[in-house]
């Protein structure tokens, strides 16, 4: 196994960069991070819509969330592969296709995290803010959002872990990320499949475990700060 790692380590980490595209673990992390980062603003809008007073808006967003959480990511990727070139009128790179699918997919999960964050603060905070004369949006901006965003951090890190795992499927449309790299190695080596795939699993294992652990640490720290104010 050590020889495999030595021989293909770079490929697994960064794909064919610098001679070609970025691939491997680097591509996985970039895709996951960009996907979440771009989905987050959408999720904030969706989160606010979910707690708004307008029934229609709440219903539409609830429907959006149900649909995106009810179909497999593979389906979304096939949709993106088909629809995106139609909409933009030109051929789009595999990376962009995957990014669009992931942004849509994650927006639904992130919307739930945002909603839980906004509704998770004690009612008294909004009341105290409104009682002192701040408008609804001023209260959101100065009192609710700053606290809610901090409280959301552990959930966001966990969602990042979920996204990293979710990106492992995009190799089937040719996106060069970590699992793609492992498939390439397997087709070169032909034997040692078990070792190759165990290395693949091992890389995901280490990355995801470390991030989950970090999320737990963050959660504990945030809880400690909150507990100071009974």
């Amino acid at each position: 196994m050590i020889e495999l790692i030595q021989k293909y380590g770079v490929m697994l980490l960064v794909g064919s960069w610098p001679h070609g595209q970025i691939g491997g673990l680097a591509a996985t992390l970039i895709l996951a991070f960009l996907g979440l980062a771009l989905a987050f603003p959408i999720a904030i809008l969706l989160g606010f819509a979910r707690i708004s007073h307008f029934k229609v808006l709440r219903g539409v967003v609830a429907g959006w969330v149900v649909i995106l959480r009810g179909i497999p990511l593979i389906m979304l990727i096939f949709w993106a592969y088909f629809v995106v070139p139609l909409i933009t009128g030109m051929s789009v790179s595999v990376f962009v296709t995957c990014l669009v699918a992931i942004i849509l997919y994650e927006s639904a999960f992130l919307a739930e995290i945002v909603r839980a964050g906004l509704q998770g603060l004690p009612r008294g905070q909004m009341e105290a803010a409104r009682a002192s004369g701040l408008s609804y949006w001023q209260s959101m901006r100065y009192v609710i959002l700053p606290q809610a965003l901090v409280n959301m951090i552990p959930s966001l890190v966990n969602q990042f872990v979920s996204t990293i795992k979710a990106t492992s499927i995009v190799y089937i449309i040719g996106m060069e990320e970590l699992t793609f790299a492992a498939q390439q190695i397997n087709s070169i080596e032909l034997t040692n499949a078990l070792q190759t795939y165990l290395i693949l699993a091992g890389i995901y294992f280490i990355v995801c475990l470390a991030l989950s652990y970090a999320a737990r640490l963050l959660e504990a720290r945030i809880q400690k700060r909150r507990a100071g104010l009974a």
């Binding site: 008294g124 105290a128 803010a129 009682a131 606290q147 901090v150 700060r225 104010l229």
Partner: peptide
Amino acid sequence: IGFVFQQFNLFPH
């Protein structure tokens, strides 16, 4: 109007 709550409701941040 000033309002003082039972749970104080200071802004912790």
